[in-house]
């Protein structure tokens, strides 16, 4: 028996990263995965989330060490740049592989 978490029985999907799995956070992570960084305005436009929702989900992702939020100044205007950390990228790669394996094995 391998130590594959999917073989643990009781909760067959408990190995899924719940931080990433929530639709809003998954949307944020996908947007950040394909770029180096983007500012909060761009993220709001791309995800369609409200500022409040975005702030809440970014806090959760930041606490997990998946995203980095940096304040910058563009001229005199403040700008919040958001990027995925290496830990976040790795977590998303694992999540993607796991989801593909799980969903790919389902019959039609």
């Amino acid at each position: 028996m391998t130590d594959d978490p999917r073989n643990r029985g009781a909760a067959p999907l408990d190995w899924i990263d719940s931080v990433i799995h929530a639709p809003a956070r998954l949307s944020i992570v996908i947007q950040l995965y394909v770029v180096e960084a983007m500012d909060a305005t761009f993220l709001v436009n791309r995800t369609g989330l409200t500022w409040g929702n975005l702030s809440t989900h970014l806090t959760k992702l930041e606490e997990s060490g998946y995203v980095e939020v940096e304040k910058e100044f563009r001229g005199k205007k403040p700008c919040t740049m958001v990027s995925l950390t290496e830990k976040g990228r790795e977590a998303f790669r694992r999540y993607r592989a796991a989801m593909q394996e799980t969903l790919g094995s389902l019959s039609d």
């Binding site: 305005t41 709001v44 436009n45 500022w51 975005l54 702030s55």
Partner: peptide, 15 residues
């Protein structure tokens, strides 16, 4: 199609 958004509440001290 896009209103100016500024940096919203994320620019403040609440984060």
């Amino acid at each position: 199609g896009h209103a100016p958004l500024g940096d919203g509440p994320l620019a403040g001290e609440d984060r």
